[in-house]
Design a protein around this nucleic acid. Structure first.
Length: 246
DNA sequence: GGACTTGT
DNA sequence: GGTTCGAC
DNA sequence: GTCGAACCGTACAAGTCC
């Protein structure tokens, strides 16, 4: 089921276009398509097979092609290109309540702020005040927003963790060297919220498993990579740890 | 008071 | 970017 | 059928800045 992935990508494209000040109607088009795709009960892949993508409200020739591209190749070139046109991390600013595209762009243009870490540094060194449109009150709100975000981001609800976890399960499960694979930690215990995902793999060739693990689609950053252990961060900002045992 | 941004 | 609608 | 133009979800509250 690629539906959620694609709608996420479309939303992200909309965010990027918004920061870049693109045509508002174009932005809305992506948002609308994303929303309609989310509500779909049927798999996009079957829409694609039957050439029925355009039956989806808000999906025309262009978006249909992008969906088709994703279904076939697992990626969308135009999306990658668009993503590269912006510093990685800048989009994360939008996750902060009170910061929308305008403010994100402002911070980037005026202060070269391109990540939440940058923003925190700027706040600490009092660089934020004095920028056009930002005074003490706004700075306070941003600080509160960051705190809120961090509290919420540290833990995610089980359902989210599950969907990320299943991607890895699927990817690693395909490997012939894998004998057994299971989850550990809070995900296994089915706690209401989890901080990260722990995967335990049994294999005679740990290196191969680690290799595959770090190459799963949607990996943003590799935090550690050793012969039998590795941990990484996904595009959804979820940390995933993997241990391989004989 | 008016303009603007975010969020619903 | 999508959709509608009239002209051709 | 297809080409191009015009239009596209509306309305609003709240907060901040000027």
């Amino acid at each position: 089921m690629k539906n959620l992935e694609i709608s996420r990508i479309f939303r992200e494209i909309a965010d990027i276009l918004e920061i870049k000040g693109d045509n508002p109607f174009r932005i809305r088009a992506y948002q609308r398509a994303a929303q309609n795709i989310e509500g779909l009960t049927e798999d996009l892949e079957s829409y694609a097979e039957g050439e029925r993508l355009r039956e989806i409200p808000g999906v025309g020739e262009d978006l249909a092609n992008k969906i088709k591209e994703f279904v076939q190749t697992g990626d969308i070139k135009a999306y990658q290109k668009l993503k590269k046109s912006l510093p990685p991390g800048l989009l994360n600013l939008l996750d902060i309540p009170t910061i929308g595209p305008k403010t994100a762009k402002l911070l980037y243009d005026k202060l070269k702020i391109k990540s939440i870490a940058d923003l925190e540094r700027a706040i600490r060194s009092n660089k934020l005040k004095g920028i056009f449109g930002i005074k003490e009150k706004t700075v306070e709100n941003i600080i509160k927003g960051i705190e809120l975000l961090k509290r919420g981001k540290e833990r995610m609800i089980l359902a989210e963790a599950d969907s990320v976890a299943s991607k890895f399960l699927q990817a690693l499960g395909k490997l012939p060297q894998v004998k057994k694979i299971c989850f550990a930690g809070s995900l296994r215990r089915q706690k209401e919220t989890v901080r990260d995902i722990d995967i335990l793999v049994s294999s005679s060739q740990p290196q191969k498993v680690i290799e595959a693990f770090t190459r799963v689609r949607g990996v943003k950053q590799i935090l550690a990579k050793g012969p039998t252990k590795s941990s990484l961060r996904t595009d959804e900002d979820v940390q995933v740890d993997c241990r391989v045992v004989p």
